[in-house]
Design a protein around this nucleic acid. Structure first.
Lengths: 122, 122
DNA sequence: AATTATGTTATAGTATGCCTATAACATAAG
DNA sequence: CTTATGTTATAGGCATACTATAACATAATT
């Protein structure tokens, strides 16, 4: 799975790492049980510091996307706390949809966007 | 319109201001043409520095939600750049929905959430 | 047994962003 | 004339992001 960092982005590097890994799982590019590169290895190939990768992995672990194993490295392992996930999605959506609502984006247009994005999950 | 700041949040104060104002517009608590409190006034009632409010207002202006008038203060004035708004919403949704997808949140559940939130817009 | 690679932790330095504090200015309202 | 407005400038404290070294225990490899 290819990971690309935009060093000119205002988004923190470790956040970019998180998001790309999560999107990789959602799109089935990496699956439950697969291993991610080791902290040092990923840091090397991407060209960033070890600790930045370690931070991303630590948060992904805490949020229930991976588990860290000294033998196998970072392994995809989803902790299925759906209720919590729904609550967090609701909070984020409230802000996101409000912005769209101000710009006259209709409920139907949002649905269409959601459907488009879900098409990529196979 | 009531604005409340959580000083323990890891979200920047000026971002909290932005989001609450945008949600206020979306929910029709404040309407096109209405004025927001002045920079100094809002800073005073909320208990923060003038520049923090100024920063929030400046960004809201740049993003096309308000216009700043020396006579009337910050006036709600939506710049209807819908195409841009749709692009930005798409990018945000891609990250948000990927998180949900990993936690087994279905397309239908997202639609239900969207509908719930749109219910508040009247 | 020795070497290597792993996650983990510690310390320290630099850079950037957030928030505050003061101050000053031109302009419009009262 | 006074007051309140947005705007701009400078400066300091603080937290976060990223990097740089270093060290440690543990597991895999040789």
């Amino acid at each position: 799975m290819l990971i690309e960092i935009d060093f000119n982005s205002d988004e923190a590097i470790y956040v970019q790492l998180q998001n790309q890994i999560i999107m990789g799982i959602a799109m089935n590019l990496i699956r439950e049980g697969d291993s991610l590169p080791s902290v040092r290895q990923l840091a090397d190939t991407v060209g960033i510091n070890m600790h930045t990768v370690n931070k991303a992995y630590a948060i992904l672990k805490q949020e229930g996307f991976i588990q860290l194993d000294r033998r196998r490295g970072a392994v995809i392992a989803i902790d299925m706390d759906k209720a919590r996930a729904l609550l967090e999605m609701r909070e984020q959506l409230q802000v996101l949809l409000a912005r769209g609502r101000c710009k006259n984006i209709s409920k139907e247009e949002v649905h269409a966007l959601v459907d488009e994005i879900y098409e990529e999950y196979r």
